[in-house]
Design a protein around this nucleic acid. Sequence first.
DNA 1: TACACTTAGTTACATAAAGTAAGTTATTAT
DNA 2: ATAATAACTTACTTTATGTAACTAAGTGTA
Lengths: 109, 109
Amino acid sequence: MKQPTICPRFEKAISLLSQRWTALVIYQLLSGPQRFNEIQSSVGISGKVLSERLKDLEHQGVVKREVIPETPVIIEYSLTEKGLSMEPILKAIENWSQAWIEPGSGSAD
Amino acid sequence: MKQPTICPRFEKAISLLSQRWTALVIYQLLSGPQRFNEIQSSVGISGKVLSERLKDLEHQGVVKREVIPETPVIIEYSLTEKGLSMEPILKAIENWSQAWIEPGSGSAD
DNA sequence: TACACTTAGTTACATAAAGTAAGTTATTAT
DNA sequence: ATAATAACTTACTTTATGTAACTAAGTGTA
């Protein structure tokens, strides 16, 4: 049994961010709207999982999917207001990583 | 092929925080040194995974394990300086969750 | 001393999540 | 018509988590 000593809203936010790849995908989208393959190759995630994550993030109102009826049709993913508001979190992680993680070591991939 | 558009230090920090339970354990320890069972019951993690996480966090210099030779012997886990310096991250998540997550809904995990 | 209880784990086995790679549908370039 | 690209999906394998029982050391009680 879990007795939530911890705030359920906080837990929910954590469980969102603790999903593998989610934070990285959001971070990537922070630099602007992007297409599926763009995100996939810059983040290094498999198509399968990216597709899952994007759907999930869409349902949670963090990411917006737009079909742009250009020449062949472009599908563009971007952050919603909710997603953009996570920037301070990602920046905090970035700052911490600059201060405390040494670059050279182990396996990042 | 993956081309790391993303800073390896940042990725490393993310992969640390994206491990299930890790952020919650650190958050919990932010409120002070605690014992194994205390963390386990407040976070709602299994002993097996907690043990793994704690070892991992120790290796990464985030958590410190201390054996206190009191009456029966107490094993206390606490954050190192590196661990304490993650507070802004957790606070940012907390703030975001207060602003953007509604408490009542679905499945947290 | 024997029996039960607590702490701090570990072990074995079951289920869920991720990775890999090939396949799909639509469109476009040659 | 053939090959290529974008955006996914499907099938199958590997890894991570969950569950629950078990261990070792110490303590409390009768």
